[in-house]
Design a binder for these strands. Structure first.
Length: 980
RNA sequence: GCCCCCGUAGCCCAACUGGCAGAGGCAGCCCACUUAAAAUGGGCACAGUGCGGGUUCGAGUCCCGUCGGGGGUACCA
């Protein structure tokens, strides 16, 4: 059987041999090394430095150990193709790959397999490296690193200390020169406190102001924690007993479970490290406009940050505390201050601290029985309601979202615009964590308030005129003129929403009753984890309990090897359990004597035993790729400016006047990181920018989310998945949809993810073995646009194999291995086809439309196949064009065609513009938009002649049939449309 | 509920600022090579763009509505 296959045919076996050979050569010759302008690898004389540059990056993977399937390398192949193409256009290209190797997945895998995470992680990375190499990735090997390398996390820790030793000064001029707000070293704040330039706002028991020098070290540390960008906080955090660690808000799903592992998450008050990302909320929102990112991702970030502009308004409530007979201010946040005249009651969150002071001893005279929940007095009612609310889980609370519950506090507040007494309720549809934890309820213009008003029999006043036909029984949240909105001093009646807001805010400000306010949904980033496998904090605690960062020369603080690295985990539902950091057990490591160089000499300290979340390492790896060997800085400033500094032109689609923020030229990865990694990384980058370490304001100038490769799942009659590879397709004899069988039994087909349990996993290794890496690359790239989700179909891979086989046959005789190309000149048709292809493929590669580039190359190759012998003059440029997608076979053919060096830097073919113009074109003649005739005309035909020719066409005449011509549209030279 | 994206041959996908619906591939059918085959070569056929309106000389493309699929988010005041 096999002896019948021609000896020199491009088979999988030959492909594998060629691929291994070229991979070795690329590695031996450092083919993909890029040039640096400065830093330890400075090569300022490299001619490529002056020719433009491009930094192309993938989201680096976790070396997870669960194995790769064919979907994983999709983005990697796409960036590799683009990077290889960019090199052939003369650019200095930086493209490498590293590993995000700290964190839960690596640790969990290690725990499962009973081995130390470092052992399993390093082994998995080796497997990953081998797989990527086998796929022919042109990564620059010397720049590769993993986040677990001490030489890398030394700088992760260094950045942490920079953040810890900084505060956000909202009044300082921005580093960009426009506006205000930037991070500054905390010592500058200390100096301000010490000199009295900034008021401490602290008083002793007698009410005298206290000075900085009066404060104890612990008190000073407390004050600074209120400013530091990395600080300690004991606030309610997300405690996940099932994982044994706390989690950030971003890591908790909407239904209150951990994103990883899907365990329940509880709110616990714990002292934890936080990152003050909220200080950057405005810039993180605003600068999205300057990025070339998918709108979807920008939208997700905007929603996550959740900036909303409104007003804080003061309502006054009589105090119920004994011995205190004034009023208490109760502040509400509202985005609709224009509707104040429609506020008919107030609602506070069950956790609201003012409740204790406003709830009176007895129900006011004539209290509606629906409001009391049958309680004898307000205190009983409110306490009962608070208890009920506190025991409700997030899930239950959400499930109950439709029905509003609440209870009257017994207190009435004064509506500041008209002095009306409005009842104050407590209800769990108001959240303590947002705004001020209290709202003014405007049922007329808010559906939630409407629902509550209906349930409790509260008055409803419309203060915006609803549009015609708006249902009578619903709140009107739309745009319209204000009505019923006037007092003796101000009237909003007739104004639109925006104007009404403006006027009422001005009035509130004037009366000292409120001010414009911006609130955010974004919360500070919880930054500590009770896990072993992460970066240790470069922090020690002194005997007073004050935290200090360790000096730079003591970095890295290495993760100690401990016998027991697994975290203490609990029953997932055990809400009362407490986190316990594995490092706390390493007492020899924890208890240290150090001289921190602060003049206090050698002292005893305890090390911080929490570790950083796995997002830390990925926050800045783009910077380290630029200068990975630099031991003096995280990146040399010249190198940073060269690769990712701001460019003269803003990104495509940026608003007028926007400037380029700098950043990686192309970043490709999954959309699942839209708010986690990408938000954190932007935040760190901005801090580094403010502190002057980088010239770019953003890490990633352009982002593309690659789609996922999904697969069909086949299930038998019992609903169990059967091996997808063994399923046979049965065509429908009627020509309808095909059916499927497995071992003769009918099975059903559905579409979904690839997974072991679904028995539909296909691995890149299998594909390399059966077809070769080049075929696999061509197939993945030809399946459709990069962003698209698409189903894997192993049967279809052969099409890509055939393409490469035909290309091979156009150069090499399958029987003898001799060259078959002819040195005769090309015929005109071939030449034009070639140049059309060059122009098209170049544009497609540039725009990452690799699928259409491949189609064009197949088309040209098919044309060459039909010739008696393929001309060298056409084959060579075709081989060069194929090289980015199928680099091994292209290199092999290039060398067989007699060329010495690698194709990697060979210039991409140039299209001759003269050969792109056709002498004649086919002109379409339409009558009333329908094609009736085609004419061969000169490409430069003028409109009048073309119109004449079209009208003279016998086919057109027959259709018109003497009817009067009303109008003729001529789009020379391609189209004439005749309207009768 | 709200927001976003996508619906083109049996399947994956092309189609520039509106201008001939088809570039490419898979599967199908026919022929050739072959004892037989296919990861061989050649050829053929296959949809009027989810559905309903509108704008236009002309709509896959723009607008409105609707259905289906996917994603995000969810009492955020």
């Amino acid at each position: 059987m096999s002896e019948r296959i021609p000896e020199h045919r491009y088979t999988a076996a030959l492909a594998n041999e060629i691929e291994a050979r070229w991979q070795e050569r690329w590695e031996a010759e450092d083919t993909f090394a890029s040039a640096n302008p400065a830093g330890p690898w400075a090569d300022p004389d490299d001619p490529r430095l002056g020719q433009g540059h491009r930094f192309i990056m993938d989201m680096f993977p976790y070396p997870s150990g669960t194995g790769l399937h064919v979907g994983h390398p999709l983005g990697f192949i796409a960036t590799d193709v683009h990077a290889r193409f960019a090199r052939t256009t003369g650019m200095n290209v930086l493209h490498t790959m590293g590993f995000d190797a700290f964190g839960l997945p690596a640790e969990q895998y290690a725990v499962q397999t009973g081995q130390h995470p470092r052992v399993t992680t390093e082994r998995n990375m080796e497997i990953y490296r081998a797989q990527l190499r086998r796929l022919g990735m042109g990564h620059e090997q010397r720049r590769s690193f993993a986040t677990i390398d001490p030489g890398y996390y030394r700088w992760t820790q260094w950045i942490f200390t920079q953040i810890f030793e900084s505060w956000y000064d909202v009044d300082a001029p921005a580093r960009t020169g426009e506006g205000t707000g930037r991070a500054r070293p905390i010592r500058e704040l200390v100096a301000q406190f010490a000199s009295g330039e900034r008021d401490l706002d602290l008083h002793d028991d007698e009410g005298r102001p206290r000075t900085w020098a009066d404060l104890s070290p612990v008190e000073q540390a407390d004050v600074l924690d209120g400013y530091r960008l990395a600080y300690l906080s004991s606030a309610p955090v997300n405690w996940c007993p099932g994982l044994g660690t706390v989690l950030s808000n971003e890591e908790v799903t909407a239904d209150g479970r951990s994103e990883r592992g899907n365990f329940p998450v509880f709110k616990r008050n714990l002292s934890q490290w936080m990152m003050r990302i909220t200080a950057y909320a405005d810039r993180l929102t605003d600068d999205l406009d300057r990025l070339d990112w998918p709108e979807k991702v920008k939208l997700m970030q905007r929603n996550w940050i959740g900036r909303s502009v409104g007003a804080t308004v003061r309502f006054d409530v009589p105090s119920a505390s004994s011995g205190h007979d004034g009023t208490l201010p109760l502040h509400v946040f509202t985005t609709r201050p224009d509707t104040l005249f429609g506020a008919t009651f107030m609602v506070v969150a069950p956790e609201h601290p003012s409740l204790a002071e406003i709830v009176p001893d007895a129900w006011p005279e004539g209290t509606d029985p629906r409001w009391t929940d049958g309680a004898p007095d307000p205190r009983t009612a409110v306490t009962a309601y608070q208890r009920m609310a506190s025991t409700k889980s997030d899930v239950e609370r959400q499930a109950d979202a439709k029905t509003k519950t609440g209870v009257f506090t017994g207190a009435f507040a004064t509506n500041p615009v008209d002095g009306r007494q409005v009842p104050v309720f407590v209800a769990d549809y108001v959240l303590m964590g947002y705004g001020t934890g209290a709202i003014m309820a405007v049922p007329g213009q808010d559906q939630r308030d409407w629902d509550f008003a209906v349930a409790y029999g509260l008055p409803i006043i419309r203060t915006v005129q609803p549009t015609e036909g708006h249902p009578e029984d619903q709140a009107f949240t739309g745009e319209g003129p204000a009505v019923n909105s006037a007092n003796d001093e101000v009237s909003l009646d007739g104004l639109g929403v925006a104007e009404a807001k403006e006027r009422i805010i001005a009035w509130l400000v004037e009366r000292g009753l409120g001010r414009e306010t911006v609130t955010y949904r974004l919360r500070d980033w919880l930054f500590s984890r009770q896990r072993y496998w992460g970066e240790p904090f470069p922090v020690v605690w002194d005997e007073d309990g004050v935290a200090h960062t360790v000096p730079d020369e003591m970095l890295p603080v290495e993760l100690p090897d401990v016998p027991d690295y697994s975290p203490r985990t609990y029953e997932p539902e055990d809400a009362d359990s407490s986190p316990e950091a594995p490092l706390a057990r390493a007492t020899d490591w924890v208890e240290v004597e150090l001289d921190l160089g602060d003049g206090r000499g050698v002292r005893r300290y305890r090390r911080e035993t929490n570790t950083m979340p796995n997002w830390a390492g990925s926050c800045w790896y783009h910077l380290r790729y630029l200068d990975p060997a630099n031991e003096d800085a995280l990146v040399d400033p010249t190198v940073e400016r060269y690769w990712i500094g701001p460019r003269p032109a803003p990104v495509a689609g940026a608003p007028a006047g926007a400037t380029d923020p700098g950043g990686v030229d192309l970043y490709v990865g999954g959309v699942e990181h839209a708010v986690l990694h990408l938000l954190y990384s932007r935040f760190w980058h901005k801090v580094l920018f403010d502190l002057g370490y980088v010239s770019s304001e953003e890490p990633f100038r352009r982002l593309i989310n690659q789609g996922m490769i999904e697969a069909y799942v086949y299930r038998d009659a019992r609903g169990f998945p059967v091996p997808a590879a063994e399923v046979e397709e049965v065509p429908d004899p009627e020509g309808g949809a095909p059916t499927f069988t497995w071992q003769g039994e009918p099975v059903t087909q559905e579409y979904g993810k690839m997974g072991k349990s679904l028995k539909n996993v296909v691995t890149p290794d299998e594909m390399c073995e059966q077809y070769g890496a080049d075929t696999f690359r061509v197939y993945e790239m030809s399946m459709g646009p990069l962003e698209q989700y698409r189903p894997w179909e192993t049967r279809a891979v052969v099409g890509s194999m055939r393409f490469l086989q035909r290309l091979w046959r156009n150069v090499v005789d399958e029987e003898t291995g001799e060259l078959t190309v002819t040195d005769d000149p090309m015929d005109v048709e071939t030449e034009k086809a070639l140049h059309r292809t060059i122009a098209g493929v170049r544009a497609d590669y540039e725009a990452l439309r690799t699928n259409t580039a491949i189609a064009k190359m197949i088309e040209l190759n098919n044309h060459l196949t039909k010739l008696p012998a393929a001309p060298r003059a056409a084959v060579e440029p075709l081989v060069q064009m194929v090289a980015p997608v199928a680099p091994h076979v292209a290199e092999e053919l290039w060398s067989r065609l007699g060329h010495e060096g690698s194709l990697a830097w060979a210039p991409f073919p140039e299209a001759d513009p003269q050969l792109l113009v056709e002498d004649t074109v086919t002109c379409v003649v339409q009558v009333r938009g329908k094609v009736r005739d085609r004419l061969e005309v000169a490409a430069d035909v003028d409109e009048a002649t073309l119109q004449e020719l079209a009208l003279a066409s016998p086919k057109v005449q027959a259709i018109i049939d003497g009817a009067p011509v009303r109008k003729v549209i001529v789009r020379a030279p391609g189209l004439v449309n005749i309207v009768v």
